[in-house]
Amino acid sequence: MDVGNRLPDARNALRERVKARRRQNERRKRNRYLLIRAISFVVVLGAWQIYGASTLEIIFTPFTTVIAHLFELLVNGPLGGAILYSLSMFLGGLVIGSIVGIILGVAMGRFAVFEAALGMYVYAIYSTPLVALIPLISLWFGFGVEAQLIIISMFVLFPITIAVYNGVRSVDAALVEVARSFRANEMAMWRHVIIPSVVPYIVTGLSQGVAMGLVGMFISEIYTALSGMGQILAFSANAYKTADMLAVLLTVMILGVTFRTVIEELRKRLAPWFNKESGR
């Protein structure tokens, strides 16, 4: 019948039009977003360039000068070695802090004994500005690699401990019961229920740990034996070499953003079920 045939066709056409319009809207939104980003980038770099060129060299330097100094420091200067040194200290501290933090968080979250015995110290130290502990750490461990690693691990440790603790505490009791109902033993419970539910929290803790670890890295390099990127930063600041200082800051910024991206990628790999799409 005519009506019967025309109706699905019209509906299909309408559906296609609606889909096409939605695609177009999304593309437009995306383009506008990228455009705003590009404009913002140009404006900020332009302002940097203009202000840097118009003021004293020791106050601020143009963006292009900073880039030139960055390359100079990398190729002929000490920056390459400094990055290597700082990064290895940072990664060492991150690994130590994460491992201890995860163990501490899991123990405190799963077993009341550890929570009762250790919880108060964790919160007390977490609430203390860690910078204030550095003189004590130097007194005990000196100014070398050992002290620096300890400082960085401490900065990393607490955000991870707290995140993992919260993760273990918020394991869904209903899912524990499901696993019990299907006769899971303690091993299977960890493997199938507890660890998977804690993974997103570990990643969250890691991303905070990385941010704190970079803070710890600079602090340890400036407050103990001057070394790594912190040394270049301190020397160039003392010598009013503002362009060098900005070059180091730019480097750290790039490192920080890189780590964040890596961890976000890690989250997608390890916890693909953990969607956090913004509702925009």
């Binding site: 209903a174 019961e177 499901v178 019990r180 109902s181 199938h192 993974v199 916890a271 953990f274």
Partner: peptide, 17 residues
């Protein structure tokens, strides 16, 4: 929990991961 029995849960009880 006995081996012969299987439970279906009100809130589904599925593992999101």
């Amino acid at each position: 929990p006995p081996r012969q029995a299987a439970m279906v849960f009100q809130q589904f009880g599925l593992f999101p991961w």
